[in-house]
Design a protein around this nucleic acid. Structure first.
Lengths: 232, 232
DNA sequence: CTCCAAAGGTATGTCTGCGAGCCATTGGCC
DNA sequence: GGCCAATGGCTCGCAGACATACCTTTGGAG
């Protein structure tokens, strides 16, 4: 028997109860900037269908987000649940093993995604989308940087044309962002990141898989060593 | 809003009910060869703890495996649930989008895993493990090939030192194996695969990340085009 | 001004899954 | 030969989640 592989295969089947996982998902959408401040979440009924949970559970999750000031709800037609400007919270106390694990998965996924995206023939809409995200990230202020950065990286994942890859990247980023939230974000890091972003996107748009991979790898290594430095 | 990213983020929160997901996991362990025919699964109490479900649910899952002749249970001390030699089943009817999605994720994960594994300094136990899995796969008969092949690929994932990567590769392989089960496995494919396996493992053991990635990419492209050819 | 569609808010009965405990069986150890 | 530890087999009550239905609020369309 492969004792080690068992640990991976016999991991818990569910990360938490339906309520917790629903909160997690909504938080992802907000923190990764998929639904920006001021924008509206899909309706409760819609979310219930898409997430595969009951509306009651969705409401409980939204309730908990309201209590933590992430969102506000308004009734009536053209009402809904709207994302606030806040960015509360930070969660400390990770172990080194977790960090290594999260960073390894991220590197595997995101370098692969960049290479794959560069190897596809992208449509005009996709190309425009990538440029738009790049522009958003490069002009972002310090407070909104993490969100805009995540949107850019998610757009790259989407450009692979694989929903599974996008989902995996989203999960991975959430884990890493949790860690990044515990260390300071400085102007020089940001400038450097933007330059790397440009290289990555240029390589993807030029259809240069090897270049995209390399540029992404260097980009990720930057924040990885920053993290390892601050957290160990 | 990034309409497309929402599809990934607002995907169903749980793949199925606890029972179904538990069956799925045990099937993974059996079909990927992590618990080989004749070997014993962990005890019900142990599985319940590790999988994070109640023992009742574990028992229902095992019951369903018994009914499909995958396993047999024996009572008493030194009893347990043992894996049979069978390999029933096959599930047809996939759409092209699913195939592309599954193959894209697999390529991202496994090429990344190979590269990462080659970039680490592996301990003697890990090196021995990789060689052993390679040997097993190369001497496997047609009927046991898929299982031995999966074990080898899982061992490579494990060599990244990241449990998350291993888990992701296991999930990905299950999806692809489901597809592979619907097409014939021929002796020449097998010979070719074995040669590629050797290159991959040699590159990893030599600490050659670029070589490992390339070898893995070629290996995966082989079965990918086979699949696309048979299934479209 | 009225209507009404679409959104959030509420209530209820059902069912799944869980925890916890106990029973039955088996084979090695003393 | 008897003990007993570890395993599968079984039951029952509770809590979480679900489906479904209905109520309330709101603002645009007609």
């Amino acid at each position: 028997m492969m004792e080690h592989a068992q640990e991976a295969l016999f991991r818990p089947v569910r990360a938490g109860n339906a309520f917790e996982e629903t909160v997690e998902r909504l938080m992802q959408a907000i923190r990764l900037g998929v639904v920006a401040p001021g924008e509206r979440l899909p309706s409760e009924r819609d979310l219930a269908t898409r997430l595969g949970v009951s509306r009651v559970t969705v409401r409980e999750a939204i309730r908990s987000l309201q209590e933590n000031n992430y969102v506000e709800s308004r009734r009536g037609r053209y009402g809904g649940t709207f994302v606030n400007d806040v960015i509360p919270k930070s969660a400390p106390g990770k172990e080194f093993g977790d960090i290594h694990d999260a960073l390894t998965l991220r590197k595997v996924l995101e370098t692969g995604a960049a290479e794959t995206a560069a190897g596809r023939s992208l449509g005009p809409a996709e190309r425009r989308g990538l440029r738009a995200r790049l522009e958003e990230a490069s002009t972002a202020s310090l407070v909104e940087y993490r969100r805009k950065d995540s949107r850019l990286h998610l757009a790259i994942a989407e450009a692979t044309g694989s929903a599974s890859v996008t989902a995996a990247v989203a999960d991975s980023r959430m884990r890493v962002n949790e860690l990044l939230d515990t260390i300071p974000l400085l102007e020089p890091n940001l400038t450097h990141s933007n330059a790397q972003h440009e290289r990555i996107i240029a390589s993807i748009l030029d259809g240069d898989p090897a270049g995209a991979r390399l540029a992404m790898a260097e980009h990720l290594d930057g924040t990885a060593s920053l993290l390892r430095g601050f957290l160990v």
